[in-house]
Computed example of a mutant assay.
Amino acid sequence: MESVIFNMLMVAKVIDKDSMLIDSTVLPDNIIYPTDIGLIFKAFKKMEQFARQYYIPIWWDSQELRQLLREYNLNRKKTEIADLFFDALLIFSAGLRKFETIVESLEGSDKDKKKARQLLDLLMLFQDQNAQKLAGERHIPNRIVSFHEPDSRPIKKGKKYPNCEFGSTLQLSFNRQGFMITMENFIGKPNDKTLWPGTTQLFEKRMKGSPDNAIGDQGYRSRANQKIPKGCPHIFLGRSQDVAEEEQAYCQKARSATEGFIAVSKNLRGFGCSLYQGTDGNRIWSLLCQTAYNLKKFLQLYNDEKISEESLMRLGLLG
């Protein structure tokens, strides 16, 4: 659907390819703010759902666990939480060992066994994460922040608030009109420098040609990226001296406009939170939001009478 609408606007020559504006942001997932002890209780919930599905008796002390949860909800001082976390972790470690035995001896279809194994692997990864935390590690790669969204990651983007969001990275490119040309989803936070070449190729493929201006912030800045796209006369990566003096004002304004396009996409067009689950769900959600974003941009230009008569005739909007 997104491709059909975009190609229709391209054929009608509504979308210009004069400039490529690239930036990345976070696509937050629809999850509760994660805490270490809170995730332990969520892990027990996952094992309980598994047990009920296969009519397996609960193998941990539910009353003891409920008491720990009650104490956690009533007393959230750091010193007390540390003790509660350790107590909950001991119960979880014992429960996980039993769960591993149950999964290994599970009788059922290959699909059921695969799902059980995936849950076990996720819980084992979470257990390793807790061990690293107890060892004093502060930066844990592929850190689990949700069992409903296992691909969600803590991502910092240098903002004052919120200083950390939980979701996936969203790499976007626009033209100077404000149309969203490309959209990419990534797990975690890949280095912006590595994303620039791939996004440039997608932009050129979709627009069937290279832009006259390629504009990004200093996060994309590298010696190699200052030559991509090849043959582009003006590549601006956050510094005025990147382009000739007569192009500096245009590039600076375009860079500022990119922030505005991102703000609109997040606050008004659905990119502020993904309501679908998983990597595939985030991709579908993002494509739907991109479709809505470009349709709204077209309506804005149409109402402002900024679309040529030729384009309107091609779209059948002018007799």
Rank of each mutant, 00 (worst) to 15 (best):
A292N: 14
E165R: 06
F261V: 04
S93M: 09
Q132Y: 06
G319N: 09
Y55T: 05
K114H: 08
A135R: 12
N303G: 08
R314S: 12
D87V: 13
F179E: 11
L65P: 05
F86M: 11
S210F: 01
K159S: 10
E246L: 08
Q132H: 11
E80P: 02
L106Q: 08
K160Y: 06
L65C: 09
D112N: 09
P150F: 08
G281V: 00
Q127H: 14
K160S: 14
F92L: 10
G231M: 07
S274V: 04
L172H: 00
L312M: 15
E149S: 13
W196V: 02
L301G: 11
A12F: 04
P197F: 04
E64W: 00
N303K: 13
D112P: 01
K253Y: 09
A224P: 00
L318K: 07
S19Y: 07
I91N: 02
I307Y: 07
A43K: 01
F271H: 15
L39R: 03
G216I: 05
V11N: 12
S240T: 06
F203R: 05
N213V: 05
L172Y: 00
I262L: 15
D36N: 14
A292R: 10
L123H: 03
G216W: 07
D23Y: 11
G319D: 13
S19R: 12
M10N: 08
N30L: 14
K111W: 05
D151N: 09
N294C: 09
F44Y: 06
D128F: 06
Q129Y: 03
S265Q: 14
M207V: 05
D128Y: 09
